[in-house]
């Protein structure tokens, strides 16, 4: 099988990889590039555990062909923190105990950050509908929604201060 040579920018790093034409972006992230933070819960775009941003748009990386990343930027959970400094969404997930098993957490954090990048002051309903593509089986979503609302408040405060 002819493999495809792909150039992409992943979490700010210029990255090259070879992939099968049928390989998903998630397969390449996890198995070729060893970025296992994005999880496969279903492989059909229903659970959101593989959520990444592709050119700034939130996508399920299991539904994107790896070859589609050619010339584009990919942002995964591994790039959310700046070095060892957690993003406010990550920090608030910890403070609110918004994770139990933690398997869905990377997808939720990428999705929540994507929401707050667009809408710094979401209502609870907006948070719930934005995150409706991410399944969590442990928490009942209560603490996740609170963490995202609190992270939004903190980000607004940071922006006001800046």
């Amino acid at each position: 099988m002819n493999r495809i040579h792909v150039n992409s920018t992943i979490n700010g790093d210029v990255t090259e990889f070879l992939c099968d034409p049928g390989a998903s972006l998630l397969d390449v992230l996890r198995d070729t590039l060893h970025l296992t933070g994005s999880k496969e819960g279903c492989g059909s775009g229903d659970c959101g555990a593989c959520t990444v941003e592709l050119d700034g748009e939130m996508v399920c990386s299991c539904l994107v062909l790896a070859a589609e990343a050619e010339g584009r930027t990919v942002a995964t959970i591994e790039g959310v923190a700046e070095g060892s400094v957690l993003h406010p969404v990550q920090q608030k997930f910890l403070e609110h105990a918004a994770l139990q098993c933690g398997f869905c957490t990377p997808g939720f954090i990428v999705a929540a950050k994507s929401l707050l990048d667009r809408n710094p002051n979401p209502t609870e309903t907006e948070v719930r509908y934005w995150l409706a593509g991410n399944l969590c089986r442990c928490t009942g979503y209560d603490k996740i929604v609170r963490a995202v609302m609190d992270a939004a408040a903190e980000l607004r405060q940071e922006r006001t201060a800046a």
């Binding site: 609870e124 309903t125 948070v127 719930r128 509908y129 995150l131 409706a132 593509g133 991410n134 399944l135 969590c136 089986r137 009942g140 979503y141 209560d142 996740i144 929604v145 609170r146």
Partner: peptide, 9 residues
């Protein structure tokens, strides 16, 4: 399964 928009606090 329930998603975030199905649930109240």
């Amino acid at each position: 399964m329930p998603v975030a928009s199905d649930m109240p606090m």
